[in-house]
Amino acid sequence: MEDEWVSLFSGGKDSSWALYQALERGLNVTRLLTVHPSDDSYMYHVPATELTGLAAESLGIELIDVHPGDLEASTAADSGEQGDAELEPLEAALTDLQSEIDIAGVTAGAIESEFQTNRIQGMCDRLGIDLFAPLWQENPRELGDAMLDAGFEIAIIQVAAHGLDESWLGRTLDAEALDELEQLNDEYGVHILGEGGEFETLVTDGPHMDRPIELEYETEWEGTHGRLVITDAYLG
Rank of each mutant, 00 (worst) to 15 (best):
D130N: 12
L97E: 03
F9I: 05
E216W: 06
L169A: 03
V35P: 08
T95E: 03
I61F: 03
A76I: 01
E220N: 14
L131E: 04
T107D: 07
R31W: 10
T49G: 13
H208M: 07
G226Q: 13
E72P: 11
D14I: 00
L228K: 11
R171K: 10
A104R: 13
L32K: 03
S10D: 07
D179A: 03
E57Y: 06
D125M: 07
G194P: 12
S74C: 01
L178E: 02
E4A: 12
G189V: 04
G11I: 02
L97G: 02
I101W: 06
S41T: 13
D70H: 11
A104K: 09
T231W: 10
N139G: 08
Q137T: 01
E214C: 04
G170M: 03
G60N: 11
S79A: 10
N118P: 01
S41N: 08
E57L: 12
T172I: 05
D3Y: 05
G12D: 08
T204F: 01
Q121I: 12
Y188Q: 10
A55G: 04
E112S: 13
S15T: 12
D165C: 04
D145R: 05
Q116E: 15
G105S: 09
D14R: 05
T95R: 00
G109F: 01
E218S: 09
T34S: 11
E91G: 14
A177K: 00
T30G: 09
L164W: 04
L169G: 07
I64H: 02
